[in-house]
């Protein structure tokens, strides 16, 4: 049990859209072990974004139980969810989502600030940037960085709090193929060093590089190979 970073049991998510109820997730049960690298695939509308939001503790399931790193995460209030996101989840987004006015270092420092850390933040943030190979871009702003470099900053930000899981939503979607490849290599590398990684993607070639693919269709897990 403790080996499972993600343990989701029959997650359901129902959206009320006017009169109609939409079942975005219709009973999804998945588990991810520590150190695994898993991709979630599926066409649009399959519920993979919803699943990622719930697994990333951005949202709550309508019903079902979800344990993240041994903590029950399906029944928390907003601030408790914020705290668990801060401690246990690192996000990498398709559009990087960096603060444009802040330097790479300040961007990476941000989760540590919300964690309430008062001293040694800069050093931790610097180490995270070194780990993604950006030691010479520490004081650059996002506009002074290439897409690939921006995504590296985002990965450093996701890792700086040493989360239980790294959630990447189409991490290569906004990048040219060369940068995309480099980012995938970085993620694989991190996984080999022990980080649990979940990638949500459309791209079969990205999914092919992961150990396991979870396919979603109409809010249900299609196959788990």
């Amino acid at each position: 049990m403790n080996d499972l970073v993600i343990d989701a049991r029959s997650l359901r998510k129902v959206y009320q859209m006017g009169e109609i109820q939409v079942n975005a997730l219709a009973g999804v049960s998945i588990t991810v072990r520590r150190g695994e690298m898993v991709s979630i695939m599926g066409p649009s509308g399959s519920g993979k974004s919803t699943l990622m939001n719930i697994l990333g503790c951005l949202d709550r399931p309508t019903s079902g139980e979800y344990y993240l790193d041994g903590e029950l995460a399906s029944d928390l209030n907003d601030d408790q969810l914020a705290s668990i996101r801060n401690r246990k989840v690192g996000f990498v987004f398709q559009s990087f989502n960096l603060l444009p006015r802040a330097t790479a270092l300040a961007n990476v420092e941000l989760p540590l600030r919300y964690a309430g850390m008062t001293s040694g933040r800069q050093e931790r943030a610097r180490q995270a940037l070194v780990a993604v190979g950006l030691e010479d871009r520490i004081h650059h702003r996002p506009t002074e960085l290439s897409g690939g470099q921006q995504q590296r900053v985002a990965i450093a930000r996701a890792l700086v709090n040493q989360p239980a899981i790294l959630m990447a939503d189409e991490p290569t979607g906004n990048l040219d193929s060369k940068s995309g490849k480099e980012i995938m290599e970085l993620l694989l590398n991190l996984n080999q060093q022990g980080t649990t990684v979940i990638i949500v993607t459309h791209d079969p070639s990205v999914a092919a590089q992961t150990q396991r693919v979870i396919r979603l269709r109409d809010g249900q897990v299609e196959e788990s190979a």
Binding site: D78, A82, R85, N86, N97, P111, Y114, N161
Partner: peptide, 12 residues
Amino acid sequence: EIGLRKAIGARK
């Protein structure tokens, strides 16, 4: 930006 801040752990 607010969404991002919240995603990385900012409370209300």
